[in-house]
Design a protein around this nucleic acid. Structure first.
Length: 489
RNA sequence: GGUGGGGUGGCCGAGUGGCUAGGCAGCGGCCUGCAAAGCCGUAUACGCGGGUUCGAAUCCCGUCCCCACCUCCA
C-alpha cells in the first residue's frame, strides 16, 4: 500500500512518491526563538517526529532540516526592552540581555523540551544568522529575475515584488486582490502594500551586532527568507515535504514559496501543516495569556503521558487541552504500560522498571496500524489498533499462551516506538542503575516470598500488612494466577 | 469580503453509502481471601431542515453555528 498525505497546496490527500527513490527530504519550521516554548510548538515537533519515524519504519531514509530563526523584529525588541531603565524582569526575560544571548538561551529551552518529549534531533538544524550569504545570493537571483527591488525611499530595504509574480497566493489559493491589506500597513518604499521585505536596511536604533553588510547596504534579513535559503542549501531546489504549523501557511509559507519559485526552484512537493493547540477551545497564544509550557505539563504528568496526549489527535486536527486531558491520557498510557510490564515479566523475566534487551529491529506493527499510518498519519485509528493489540496480549497472558502474548508484546513495542513513546522521558525510566534495580528486586521478592507463606497459611492480616508496607514504599503488588508481581507506582 | 478546516454518544476522538473504531468515565458480570490488574457484556450518537437511495453520520440542496489564516505566531 502506498503512503498518502494531505497536501495543503492541492487541498487533497494524494499518494506520496519520493522525488529520489528511497529517500525523503523534509524541512519543517522550528521556532523563532523570542520566548519560551509552549506546548503548541512541541505539538508541531511531535507531529513531524511521528512523520519521520513512520517514513523510516517504511524503509525510507529521511533527511530532516528544522530551522532556528534567531534574528527577527521581536527578538531585537525584547532585547532592547531588557536594557531600558526600570526594566521589569518579567519571568522569561532577563535584564540587559543581548539579542543573540536571548535567542540562544531560548533555543536551548526548545531543545530541552524536544529532548524530554522524545522528539528526535533533526539531521541538521541551521540558524538564520549563519546563512546571510545564502540569503544574499537568493535576493540577487530574485532581483535579476525582476521579482525583487531595492526600496526607493533610501531605507536600504529590499522587497519581493508581489505584482511581478502571477502565481503569488498559490499555496493558500488566494487571489492578491482578495487579500485584506494590513490595517497598519506602512507602504514605505513599496510598490504594493503586499510586498514583503527580503532585506531590512539598518536603522540607528538597531544594535550594530544585528547587521551585516550586503550589496544593498547594511541590514538584516526579512522573516521569510531564511527558510527559502536554508531549505535550498541543504535539501536542494526541489525536495519532498515542507511542514509547519497551520498558522504559518500565510504569510510565512506563501512567501517562502513565492521567493523560491520566483527564483526558479521547484521547492516543496508536499506541504503539510499541523493543527493548533487550544486551551478550552481558544487558541493558545501569548496575547491571550493562555499558554501552557512543556514544563507545566511535565509537572503534571510523566513525559510519556505528555507525549501521548500531544500526539494522540490527528496532526491536522485542533487539539484541545483541558485540565482533565492529561489524566485521561495517563489512564490510556498506563493500560499500555501495564501490559508491556506484565508481558516482560512473564515472558522475558524482566523485573519491573528494569532494562531489557530485545532485538526491536525485527518487530513489526500490525497491518491495521500500518494502514492507518499510511493514510495521512491517522494516529487516532492507529491507536485503536494499538489498544486492540494490548487487549489481545492481555487475553493471551491470562490464558497462558505465552507465544501469542509475545507476538502482541513485540507489536506493541514496535507501535509505541513508531509513535515515539519509547523516547519520551529521561530515557530508561526512574528505576536507577542495574545494580539498584537488582537490589530492589531482590528485596521485594523476599517480601513477596513471605507474603506467599502468609497467604498459604491463610493469614490474611499478615499478607495485607506486607502489601501495605510495600505500598507505602511506592511498590504496588498484584496477585496474578501464576503468582504475585510488583511494579513501581 | 477571501481562503482552509470543522460540528459524532457524559468527555476525548476515528469513520465517506449497509457489517455498532478506540480510549477515558459509568453500569452489570467473571476472576480474587480482599484488592489491583485483566477479561466479557452494556446504555447514551452523528448541528438543523429537506432530498436521492432498498438503505445515509457518510451523497445532494438549503440553513445555523464554530475554529484558523488574511498582522507576529507551531
Amino acid at each position: 500500500m502506498s503512503i498518502r498525505f494531505y497536501d495543503t497546496q492541492q487541498a487533497q490527500v494524494r499518494d506520496f512518491v519520493p522525488l529520489t527513490p528511497g529517500r525523503v527530504g523534509l524541512y519543517y519550521c522550528g521556532a523563532t526563538v523570542q520566548g519560551m516554548p509552549h506546548v503548541g510548538h512541541v505539538r508541531s515537533a511531535i507531529a513531524f517526529d511521528i512523520l519521520v519515524r513512520w517514513l523510516e519504519h517504511r524503509g525510507l531514509r529521511v533527511d530532516v532540516v528544522r530551522n532556528v530563526t534567531d534574528i527577527d523584529d521581536k527578538i531585537l525588541e525584547k532585547s532592547q526592552a531588557s536594557f531600558a531603565p526600570g526594566f521589569d524582569a518579567a519571568d522569561p526575560y532577563q535584564p540587559a540581555e543581548d539579542w543573540f544571548a536571548l535567542a540562544y538561551r531560548f533555543e536551548q529551552a526548545f531543545a530541552d523540551a524536544y529532548d524530554t518529549l522524545g522528539v528526535r534531533r533533526p539531521t541538521y538544524e541551521p540558524r538564520a544568522t549563519g546563512h546571510i550569504t545564502e540569503m544574499h545570493e537568493l535576493i540577487a537571483r530574485l532581483i535579476d529575475a525582476g521579482h525583487a527591488y531595492p526600496a526607493t525611499d533610501g531605507s536600504g530595504d529590499v522587497y519581493f515584488d508581489v505584482r511581478s509574480y502571477p502565481a503569488y497566493g498559490a499555496l493558500t489559493r488566494q487571489r492578491v486582490e482578495d487579500m485584506q491589506a494590513a490595517p497598519d500597513a506602512d507602504p514605505r518604499g513599496k510598490r504594493d502594500p503586499r510586498d514583503f521585505a527580503l532585506w531590512k536596511g539598518y536603522k540607528d536604533t538597531d544594535p550594530a551586532t544585528a547587521s551585516w553588510p550586503s550589496p544593498w547596504g547594511r541590514g538584516r534579513p526579512g522573516w521569510h527568507l531564511e527558510c527559502s535559503a536554508m531549505a535550498g542549501k541543504y535539501l536542494g531546489p526541489a525536495f519532498d515535504i515542507h511542514g509547519g504549523g497551520l498558522d504559518l501557511r500565510f504569510p510565512h509559507h506563501e512567501n517562502e514559496l513565492a521567493q523560491s519559485a520566483a527564483a526558479g526552484d521547484a521547492f516543496a512537493n508536499f506541504w503539510m501543516h499541523n493543527g493548533m493547540v487550544t486551551f478550552e477551545g481558544e487558541k493558545m497564544s501569548k496575547s491571550i495569556g493562555n499558554t501552557i509550557s512543556p514544563e507545566e505539563m511535565l509537572d503534571a504528568a510523566p513525559a510519556r503521558v505528555v507525549r501521548y496526549f500531544l500526539g494522540q489527535a490527528h496532526y491536522r486536527s485542533q487539539l484541545d487541552y483541558k485540565p482533565s486531558s492529561l489524566q485521561e491520557a495517563a489512564a490510556a498510557v498506563e493500560r499500555i504500560d501495564t501490559f508491556i510490564s506484565h508481558a516482560l515479566q512473564r515472558i522475558h523475566a524482566v523485573a519491573p522498571g528494569g532494562d531489557f534487551e530485545l532485538d526491536m529491529a525485527h518487530f513489526e506493527v500490525t497491518a491495521d496500524f500500518a494502514a492507518a499510518m499510511d493514510d495521512d498519519l491517522n494516529v487516532p485509528q492507529a491507536l485503536a489498533a494499538l489498544h486492540e493489540t494490548v487487549r489481545r496480549g492481555n487475553k493471551a497472558l491470562a490464558a497462558g499462551q505465552l507465544e501469542a502474548a509475545d507476538e502482541a508484546l513485540q507489536q506493541v513495542l514496535a507501535m509505541t516506538s513508531t509513535l515515539g513513546l519509547d523516547d519520551a522521558g529521561t530515557g530508561g525510566g526512574d528505576a536507577g542503575s542495574p545494580a539498584r534495580q537488582e537490589a530492589l528486586d531482590t528485596l521485594v521478592q523476599a517480601q513477596l516470598a513471605e507474603r506467599i507463606e502468609a497467604r498459604t497459611a491463610r493469614d490474611w492480616a499478615r499478607a495485607d500488612r506486607i502489601r501495605d508496607t510495600l505500598a507505602a514504599a511506592g511498590i504496588v503488588v498484584e496477585d496474578a494466577a501464576d503468582g504475585a508481581r510488583w511494579s513501581l507506582k
